[in-house]
């Protein structure tokens, strides 16, 4: 302590006292100690499993076999697989339809809520809460709910309603052509809440004076949307698209509960296929390779969307 007293006093109050604090202070001023906890957590629970999955993809591991050998068979078997082609087509149509549907519907509801709030209408909070309620339901329960709704048995709610309206019942889940549509509807119904909240928050940040200026400039509704709302929402829409894309690509519990991937392979998407490969066929190596494929697809699409994000707001 005595040597600190003889040192000239710095203009900033000293953060540490004594020589002992020197190393700790130097460390604390660098980024490493602050990053370490996060790096450790991510490494342990995210990075390690990914590396392990990569390793497994290059083995012939089976779920209940302890003996494994390195092999290219898991990976190479995917190359010529016609099943995988079907799965990828399913994944593409399911993902595109769900993502577009969730963003469009979420945006529509968010615009509606903001508009209602500006008009000082009652009930906007109730509406927001109802929409959010869908998001609170676990995906697997969502699948079961929609299975009951779509059910072609006499108690199926949608078909009952159609019958009452004098419309012929629809084979929602048993017709391979309709099953994918049903899966997309169930996914959109649940995921819309997420888009809605994200876009609602973004809409709330838009200065209302801009809309007033546009009103005085005699802008029509589409012009207000095109020149004010949409440019402001661009970053939020892209972030929303990235998040929903990842969630939808990884979605499997709703479909598992709704159709189980059927009829046939009509609604089997990549994540469900990987699940089946591991837990029904016990082909751990092949399942790991499929997971890698899913990871690569997710990363590529995310990277592409990220490129569209404005680097800095001007």
């Amino acid at each position: 302590m005595t040597d600190t007293a003889t040192r000239p006093i710095a203009d900033a109050p000293p953060r540490t006292t004594g020589a002992r604090g020197g190393v700790a202070a130097r460390l604390a001023s660098g980024p490493l100690p602050w990053l370490l906890p996060a790096v450790a957590m991510l490494g342990l629970f995210y990075l390690y499993p990914v590396i392990e999955a990569v390793r497994l993809a290059f083995t012939d591991a089976r779920l209940f076999d302890t003996e494994t050998a390195f092999s290219m068979r898991s990976v190479s078997s995917l190359a010529g697989s016609s099943t995988l082609g079907t799965i990828l087509r399913n994944t593409l149509s399911y993902t595109v339809a769900s993502v577009v549907g969730q963003i469009a519907l979420g945006l529509a509801i968010a615009l509606l809520v903001v508009r209602a709030e500006r008009a000082r209408l009652r009930g906007t909070l109730v509406l927001r809460t109802i929409v959010l309620a869908a998001w609170v339901i676990p995906a697997i329960a969502n699948g079961i709910i929609w299975q009951l709704l779509f059910s072609e048995a006499p108690f199926g709610a949608i078909n009952s309603a159609l019958r009452m309206a004098g419309v012929a019942p629809v084979a929602w889940l048993s017709d391979p052509g309709n099953a994918m549509l049903s899966a997309v509807i169930a996914t959109i119904w649940q995921g819309t809440a997420y888009s809605m909240i994200l876009l609602y928050a973004a809409l709330k940040t838009i200065d209302t004076a801009l809309y007033e200026a546009a009103a005085i400039d005699a802008a029509r509704p589409w012009e207000r949307f095109w020149f004010i709302t949409l440019p402001h929402l661009r970053p939020a829409l892209l972030v929303n698209a990235i998040l929903i894309l990842i969630m939808t690509l990884n979605m499997f519990d709703t479909i598992l509960a709704l159709t189980g991937g059927g009829p046939g392979r009509a609604t089997e998407i990549l994540s469900l296929y990987a699940y089946g490969t591991v837990f029904q066929n016990f082909e751990l190596g092949r399942g790991a390779a499929l997971s890698m494929l899913l990871l690569v697809i997710s990363l590529t699409l995310t990277a592409l969307l990220t490129l569209l994000l404005p680097q800095e707001r001007r």
Binding site: L210, I216, I228
Partner: peptide, 28 residues
Amino acid sequence: SPGQRNVAMVFQNYALYPHLTVAANIGF
């Protein structure tokens, strides 16, 4: 409606359209 009244207004925070250029703002 405001647009039909042929009035022009300058707002306290200017309310310029942030995604349009100055020329596009003036010409709006």
